[in-house]
């Protein structure tokens, strides 16, 4: 029954996307964005990462709805599901406590639903991951461009400042600072304040990483012809920075931002693990991991689940970030 002239065979022989997408149309120039998107579409790993991230963001936003279907409120105790002697979920084997009502089991000691705590924990992780990255990128990109473009003593001052920040014992400082935050400050209180402080600490002290990269890129860009052209036409520095340099820096900024988000999520988890993250009973992945340490032998899944959540999230962002870099910067391949 095989047709001698199979259609699929014909397309398979055709040259890559140029022909496919150009078929029947006049050949036209493609923007950098279009080329990047095309390359990205072919990178299955990056796509998978992107899909996971979108799902994650959706489930974090929809957490209140999803937990109505299964799991229940994240802070509700179910001590009837806990064996009082061992403080572990009732039942045998590592999957004790797993049920339709509690698809990822319940927390030792309190019997709170792990599934809904993971979803609500995702809110915290993502909010802190994104906002902290935003802060880093805003400061890092600005300082990097200024240092790279103006050079001279400005560059020296900014670069040495970056060195100083990089040499800073960030984790220790974060521990100390987060430990002394008052209950009310800057018109904020409770967890809003904690999140704001965490975003500030993580964001503010990580900007030199992106700052250095942007500075390097700017250094090479400012010697390029189009910058010279703009300047010889009388463009002021601020115009050159905004209209000539920044658009060309979007690609590296986007790539490194994507790669910074998972680092920041891990950092938040580490701080929560060490007990200076957000306040109980608000769920956080790092806090769940910290709690699980005492129960790894009696309720191993309680450690595995938040660990997996962190792993999958970080992995997804890294895959997407790598894909973006490959797509946006062909030289890097």
């Amino acid at each position: 029954m095989a047709a001698p002239l199979d259609v699929t065979g014909a397309t398979a022989e055709a040259p890559p996307e140029a022909v496919l997408e150009g078929a029947g149309k006049a050949i036209e120039g493609r923007s950098l964005g279009q080329i990047a998107w095309m390359r990205l579409k072919r990178d299955k790993f990056a796509l998978a990462g992107g899909v996971v991230i979108i799902l994650l963001i959706l489930s974090a936003i929809l957490a209140p709805l999803l937990t109505k279907i299964t799991g229940g409120p994240p802070n509700e105790f179910h001590q009837d599901l806990i064996d009082p002697t061992f403080s572990k979920p009732v039942g045998d084997g590592p999957f004790a406590g797993f049920s339709w009502a509690h698809p990822l089991g319940v927390e030792p000691r309190s019997g709170r639903d792990v599934f809904s705590r993971i979803l609500y924990g995702a809110q915290i992780s993502l909010v802190i991951g994104f906002l902290a990255t935003l802060v880093s990128v805003a400061i890092g990109a600005t300082m990097g461009v200024i240092a790279g473009y103006f050079g001279g003593w400005i560059d020296t001052v900014i670069s040495r400042t970056m060195d100083a920040f990089l040499a800073f014992p960030l984790l220790l400082f974060a521990l100390a600072l987060a430990g002394v935050i008052p209950d009310h400050a800057f018109g904020l209180s409770g967890n809003t304040l904690r999140v704001a402080v965490l975003v500030f600490i993580i964001g503010f002290f990580n900007w030199p990483y992106i700052g250095r990269i942007i500075r390097g890129q700017t250094l090479s860009l400012r010697e390029r012809e189009f910058v010279d052209a703009a300047r010889s036409l009388g463009a002021r520095s601020s115009y050159v920075l905004r209209r000539e340099l920044l658009p060309n820096l979007i690609a590296p900024i986007l790539v490194y931002a994507t790669l910074m988000i998972p680092t920041n999520i891990l950092f938040e988890a580490a701080l929560s693990f060490l007990g200076v993250g957000i306040r109980p009973p608000t769920p956080s992945w790092g806090k769940m991991l910290a709690d699980a340490v005492g129960y790894y032998s009696v309720a191993p899944m309680y450690m595995v689940v938040p660990g997996l959540a962190i792993f999958i999230t970080v992995m997804a962002f890294n895959l997407l970030g790598d894909g973006l870099r490959d797509a946006l910067d062909p030289h890097a391949r």
């Binding site: 009082p84 002697t85 061992f86 403080s87 000691r109």
Partner: peptide, 9 residues
């Protein structure tokens, strides 16, 4: 009882 369970039973 819930406080007792919190402290390890």
């Amino acid at each position: 009882v819930s406080l007792q369970t919190a402290y390890g039973g």
